[in-house]
Amino acid sequence: MFGLDTFIATAVSASAPIVATAVGGAFAERARCTNIGMEGMMLMGAFTALSVSVISGSAWLGLLAGIAVGALGGVFLSVAVHLLTCDIIIAGIGFNMMVSGVTLLLIDVFHGESGTWAPTRPPLLPRIDLGAYADTPLIGLFLHGQSVLVLVILAVVVLAWIVESRSRFGRHIRAVGDNLEAVVAAGLNPTVLRTTTLAISGATAGLGGSFLAISALGVFAADMSGGLGFIALAAVIFAGASVVRSALVAVLFGLSVAFATQFQSSGLPVQFVLMTPYVATILGLLLVGVRRRSSGNPPIINPTSPIQH
């Protein structure tokens, strides 16, 4: 039986963390700072959000902490790239490895758990209760019963869109990505701009991570981000680094999960359900490549540089 309400609920909750992360990722990508580290920043955000929620007793404080730590992660990556002069891709991979180690270490040290930490009765963010309007078409269907974080994330998308299209900063990051010389000639500091975009990307990844940790279950599991950060990056690449389009593509990836979940009841093995977002991501990128090729933009062979001078 095809339950539209469960389908939509699954789609919304599967999309939300990807959407949040992709929105910030679009900023970084715009500034030519491909943020592979979003995966780790999500994980950091998830862990911090849950920890601070439990310690302070307030899930809202937890959320703020998750976002702040994600932003710090972005700054850290920027330092590695600008001060240590690491290749941004490889530094991002290193960052993910490090975060995955640190979170594992911390849940072991503080909670004596290996891999999964499930605190008893953790504070969670409230759910949206539309009361009498719960059955309103559309709004009720999409929002009722979801975490308020869904609303927060929607607000972030709108805010990011305004910043991107209307603000000075939006113009500056576009300039950094498109013509560095123009930025320098205009007297702006590209390093500061790039660091800011990475911090923003970290903050929204922290938001996405918080969604994983304190919206529904209140559990942290090692590598619970499960590649969502990479998927968000793929969405950003697919959308050509535009905020709204990145969010929409992220929703598409979330929909693929909802579809697969629907098919599970009709016999699709759980493993195939779980691999759906990854397959969808590869297919999405394939589409990008084919489109780029047919539009006559020849692919560039640019080696990744692990160790530089």
């Binding site: 113009r171 576009r174 300039a175 498109d178 013509n179 123009a182 930025v183 000639a185 205009a186």
Partner: peptide
């Protein structure tokens, strides 16, 4: 030294935008 994706006015005022 222009940013191709921005408008003429945005380029003219890049770095000292009227905001």
């Amino acid at each position: 030294k222009l940013v191709p994706t921005l408008t003429v006015a945005d380029n003219v005022f890049l770095g000292h935008e009227l905001s």
